[in-house]
């Protein structure tokens, strides 16, 4: 029972359908993404068709279906951040990393995400790297940030 997936499933002895989302969320938190194996196991556990599990999982922004990148860069695109130029920051990140939001760089180092609102509108624009917020972010900081992350991985 070393498999973390089985361990999580064991915590859900109740197999009613309304456990589906909490279960997927726990697995996602633990693995960082939803593997095909995990979708299949969840559907067996809850006796739900796998198409339904996959259908539910793909409906929500929270779930990813590929292994997580080292650095997840989330750019707030809330109204306040938009007014402070978050679109420009996003464009620059796209150019620098050569990926679109929702994608991971081929080396698995960076993933770019657009988030609706991080809830600190007084401090916009906000860029979050692995959960750490950079407030009042500007386009000029991008190159350094990316470099620092790369060094960290190396």
């Amino acid at each position: 029972m070393d498999n973390p997936l089985d361990r999580i499933l064991k915590q859900y002895p109740n197999t009613r359908r309304d456990n589906l989302l909490p279960l997927l969320q726990d697995i996602h938190d633990s693995l960082g993404y939803l593997s095909e194996e995990s979708i299949i196991k969840v559907s067996q556990h809850l006796s739900l068709p796998s198409s339904k599990v996959y259908g539910v999982a793909t409906f929500f922004d929270q779930f990813h279906f590929e292994p997580q990148a080292h650095f997840v860069i989330r750019i707030c695109s809330g109204t306040s951040c938009h007014l402070s130029g978050s679109a420009e920051i996003m464009d620059e990140f796209k150019k620098t990393l050569n990926i679109r939001p929702g994608q991971t760089t081929r080396d698995g180092v960076f993933r770019l995400e657009e988030v609706p609102c991080l809830g600190a509108c007084g401090l916009s624009p906000i860029v979050e790297v692995n959960g750490e917020s950079h407030t009042g972010f500007s386009v000029q900081q991008i190159a350094d940030l990316v470099e620092a992350c790369k060094e960290n991985v190396a």
Binding site: R17, D18, L21, L24, Q25, G55, F59, F60, D61, F63
Partner: peptide, 26 residues
């Protein structure tokens, strides 16, 4: 407590209910 998995439409009550039931939030 139920955590939303990120979909704006789930603020709509029938969609929210679907989500708690373990369905797509439509």
């Amino acid at each position: 407590i139920r955590k939303s998995a990120g979909a704006f439409v789930c603020g709509e009550e029938t969609a929210l209910i679907s989500t708690i039931e373990g369905r797509r939030g439509m």
